[in-house]
Design a binder for these strands. Structure first.
Lengths: 191, 191
DNA sequence: CGGCGTTTTGAGAGAGCTCAACATCGGTGG
DNA sequence: CCACCGATGTTGAGCTCTCTCAAAACGCCG
């Protein structure tokens, strides 16, 4: 999935120590005491919630520039797990250092508030998209919200974002291709 | 739906002018320029997004103490509609007044960040709940996240929160009642 | 060339949605 | 008091859609 993060947090903490994680390595688990704040410099990391039975819910897939588990800055224990899904590099700060910097520096707290507000918007839209019944409806709303269909090789990510299976999305895309070529009378290579 | 808002914003702006809206009255529409910040003092208000075709997505139902459209504080135009669903009373501030207060008062900016962080958590969980296929799974996760089933008369709200129809939730609740009474051997009035 | 992941398409089963009928409850007004 | 009304809860039947399992074509890269 393509994600544009104009308000990257990395730039505010250039001196923070860097820590590397290999793919699959956990950063923290639900119930752990919050000591550090993780800012993702490169790679991808998932926030995961385990339900009572085996189900794994991916609450969020973080990309470069993002802070992991925003709410942890104000909580004493984590409420979800975090795992690196690719090799990752994090800027690591103590929670106190982060919070005092937040209180001291309006630029940082502004960026923080902005990034949180955007995360709220995105998550709410995702929730509403997933309350739609058909794949066609979900895709329509997703596209209408300013997203664009990426090239082949990334469609599975879109399926995950929409909360449907790969196959369901492939079928819907196939339908749209054939419908479009039916109206234009041309076989066409859509983006 | 029951919602506990320990960090109500109302208390920070006791002097703000109050404005009343009747049920169904719009506060703003997508595309309007952002001039004011609305803090809900009483009642309920919905954030609504209209899709290309007729569908209405309820992005969020705000309750007392909450700020409407958090992201609007940093945006020049609204990205969704807002409508009072009950008679509502709002504290209304100019955006500049709100933002300067935010920059000046650490207590306010702290509460703001906390409330945003919580909103992110809630929205992400809701999104993941709605990516589950069966009503039973959605209800399990929702209950496992610290929610409790309200008394009769509020089940439709739960259905809306889970993103399923009334009937589907009624059936699932009925199943659980009969399953429970089967294991206990007793007909029981569950809450 | 031979894996490996992605895309494509098929078939069946399962689950919720829709429409519909009816029961229940609380409030209103005759 | 009772009839009526609306909203909520309950249950049934059919339809549609996705999910699941499966098989195969395609593309990329070592």
């Amino acid at each position: 999935m393509i994600m544009i993060m104009s308000d990257s947090f990395d730039r505010f903490f250039p001196d923070a120590t860097s820590r590397r994680y290999v793919a699959g390595q956990p950063l923290f688990r639900a119930g752990d005491a919050v000591r550090s704040i993780f800012i993702l410099r490169s790679g991808r990391a998932d926030l995961i919630r385990h339900t009572g039975r085996g189900a794994r819910l991916i609450l969020h897939r973080a990309g470069p520039g993002q802070i992991l588990a925003e709410a942890s800055a104000w909580s004493d224990v984590y409420h979800c797990d975090a795992v690196a899904v690719e090799p990752c590099e994090f800027a690591v700060l103590t929670r106190n250092a982060f919070r005092s910097r937040l209180a001291r520096d309006p630029a940082v707290s502004g960026a923080w508030a902005k990034s949180l507000a955007r995360a709220v918007q995105e998550a709410r839209l995702r929730a509403e998209i997933r309350s739609l019944v058909t794949v066609a409806d979900r895709l329509d709303v997703w596209l209408g919200a300013g997203n664009e269909l990426p090239g082949k090789g990334y469609w599975q990510d879109v399926a995950a974002e929409l909360g449907v299976t790969r196959e369901a999305l492939y079928r819907e895309l196939s339908n749209r291709r054939s419908r479009r070529s039916a109206t234009t009378g041309q076989a066409r290579r859509t983006i």
